[in-house]
Amino acid sequence: MFKATINAKDFKKIIDATSNLVDEICFEVDENGIKANAMDPSHVALVSVNIPKDTFEEYISDVHDIGVDLEALKKIMGRAKSNEKLTLELDEEKNKLNLILKNDAVRKFSVSLYDVSSTNLKVPDIEYPNEVMIKAGAFVEALKDAELVNDHVSLKISEDGKFIIFSKGDINQSETIYDNNSESILDLKITESSKSTFNLAYLKDITKATSSDDILHIYLGSDMPVKIEYNIGNAKILFLLAPRIE
C-alpha cells in the first residue's frame, strides 16, 4: 500500500530538480516518507531527495521500491497547475504508479514502473571545512558570468573569508566575490581557505530548478566534491558534484 497527497507545485519542483541530472529513479517509500538517491549516468554527480511524511496532506505507506522514468513524470507534472493537489498511488496489481491531479477536474495519469531496483546507494558523509549560505539567484548569476570565459568554474574560499566564484579561459577571466556584507549571503561558516573546480554544465543543472529566493547551503573544501542543499517545502534536496582535479 502506498498513497500520498501533496501540493502539485512542490512535487513538480522536486521532479524538475531531480530530472535535470537523472533519467530514472527509485523512490524508496515507507511509513516515514519518500527517499531517493541516484547518480547521473556518468557518475559525476549524485542527487538525494528526502520528502518526510509530514510534507504530505495524507500519507499511508508500507515499504516499497517504486522505480519510475523521470522524463515521463516530468511531462505529467509539467501539465499540473500550481493550485492542484496531487495524489500518488501505487497499483501493485498492474505494476503502475497512478498520479491523480485534483482541482476543478480530476485528471488521472498512470506510469509503468521500471525495474530500477533500489541501489542502496548511500550519500557519503563528508566533513567540510566551509559552508556558504547564499540566495540561489545570486549563485546562478555568478555561474552565468563564469560561463562567459570557460566551461568550468572554481569555487574558492579566500584566506580573508570571502566566497569567490572564479573562472579563467585562455585569455579572459571572470570573478564574483561575496563576503559577509553581501545581501545575498545569509551566512559564511569558514574554517580555512579552499578551492575546488567544477564542470559548469553540472552546476547549472543542479541549480536549474531553484527560485532566486531559495537558500542554497554550499559546502566546500579543497579538491573535494561540492555539496549543495536546499529545501522545497518540507522536502530536502541534496546534490554532490565531483571536482576536476588539476
Partner: peptide, 12 residues
C-alpha cells in the same frame, strides 16, 4: 587541463 573525478571515487 584537469581530470574530471567521479563521485563514487569519494565513497568509502
Amino acid at each position: 587541463n584537469g581530470k574530471q573525478m567521479r563521485i563514487d571515487e569519494f565513497f568509502k
